[in-house]
Amino acid sequence: MKESCDAIDLAAYCARIGHDGELGPTLETLRRLQARHVAAIPFENLDILLGRGIDISPRAVDAKLIGARRGGYCFEQNALFKRVLEAIGFQVEGLLARVLWMAPSDAPPRPRTHMALRVVVEGRPWLADVGFGGNAPVAPLAMDVREVQATRHETYRVTPSEEGLLLQARLDGEWAPLYDLSLQPQLPVDYELPNWYTATHPSSHFRHQLSVARTTPEARYALRNARLTVRTPAGEQTRRELGVGELETVLRETFGLPVAEGWRAVLERAVAAERETA
């Protein structure tokens, strides 16, 4: 293993995600870590809604996602995963993508506000992404093939685009665009501006709705405000609205988050917002 300039406690990370296997820079290791990461560390934006902002320095990310057993969004999740992979000995580059998920086909271009990773294993490039919420791939995807790629949950395809590569997922029988990925490698400093924009700009949906997601082998769990959606690998899907007390229970028991008293106002707003749109 090589030592990263931003040292990561691999033992603490492995304990956090429940991994006790080998840590060599192999495709099998990458697959196991990616699956365990998205199952153990939830996607969530609570700090944005609490007005705390998002600190993406390595020390802050490790303290939050590992030490405090919290979750985070892409700039936290994939930055952590990148440093873990580098410490193991993988060749990793950070990338930026333009999110297309849930955008109308005629919508103006969005800024590049999503971080993803290119991991080279035995000379072959793989897309690794543990920070795309309820649609994050549970396995690395080959970036040099155009055939569909099945995972335990959705099937994906990676195709050329004007900007680089387009990632799509097969959802409800149709191909849904997730994001358009630029292949220009990014430095850590390149994420400061999109992170600030995503966490603070009035148009960012992360400032206005609670978003929490976790993917286990059994199901994908996703919260949008106070609506919980559960989707199984077989395609079965259920949705239900939650009250504040139920929301606290789900955050604690389903997503594994250490619910704090200070979150109450955010959860009350999430329940009110869900009722307004029902």
Rank of each mutant, 00 (worst) to 15 (best):
A169T: 04
P185E: 01
H201K: 03
V84Y: 13
T151Q: 14
W263H: 09
G94R: 00
E162K: 05
P217Y: 05
Y221I: 04
D62I: 07
I88Q: 13
L127D: 00
L30G: 10
V61T: 14
L27W: 13
G133K: 05
H208F: 10
W101G: 02
K2M: 13
P42A: 08
V38K: 07
A219F: 03
T229R: 14
L167F: 02
Y73H: 02
R83A: 04
R224Y: 12
P258F: 11
A265M: 11
E28G: 08
A270Q: 06
L23K: 12
G51T: 06
L187C: 02
L127G: 00
W175V: 07
L46A: 08
A39R: 15
Q77E: 08
G72N: 03
T151K: 07
E3F: 10
E147Q: 15
R275S: 13
G67H: 07
L193G: 03
L242D: 07
E276P: 01
S105H: 10
H205R: 10
I8F: 08
P233T: 04
E76F: 02
E163C: 07
Q77M: 11
R83M: 03
Y221C: 13
L23I: 13
A128R: 09
A176V: 15
V271C: 07
Y191A: 04
A265S: 12
R157P: 14
E276Y: 05
L50M: 15
T238A: 11
F81G: 01
L171N: 06
L23T: 14
T200W: 15
R170L: 15
V138A: 11
T198W: 09
F255S: 04
Q186T: 01
N78L: 00
T151E: 11
T113A: 04
P258H: 08
V84L: 10
D9M: 10
T155V: 15
L65A: 12
S203Q: 12
A219P: 05
H205P: 12
V271K: 06
R239W: 09
D144P: 09
N78W: 00
R240E: 13
F206L: 08
H201L: 06
H19V: 01
P194H: 05
L95S: 02
A213E: 05
E246M: 07
T216D: 07
R157I: 01
R227T: 11
G72P: 00
D144A: 02
N78Y: 01
E241Y: 12
V99L: 04
L181W: 00
P42L: 03
D62W: 14
E261M: 08
L30P: 12
A97D: 02
P104R: 13
R207I: 03
R32Q: 14
F90D: 03
A39P: 14
Y191R: 06
A79T: 12
D129T: 01
P104F: 10
H114K: 01
E22R: 14
Q209E: 15
R59D: 15
R98G: 00
E93T: 01
A272G: 06
I66C: 05
E162C: 03
L171C: 05
P104A: 14
A87S: 15
R70P: 01
H208E: 13
R231I: 09
A7M: 14
V266Q: 09
L228C: 06
E86V: 06
R146H: 10
T198C: 06
T215C: 07
P108S: 03
D6K: 15
S105K: 14
T277Y: 12
A260E: 15
L27I: 10
A40C: 07
D106Q: 08
M102W: 11
V84I: 13
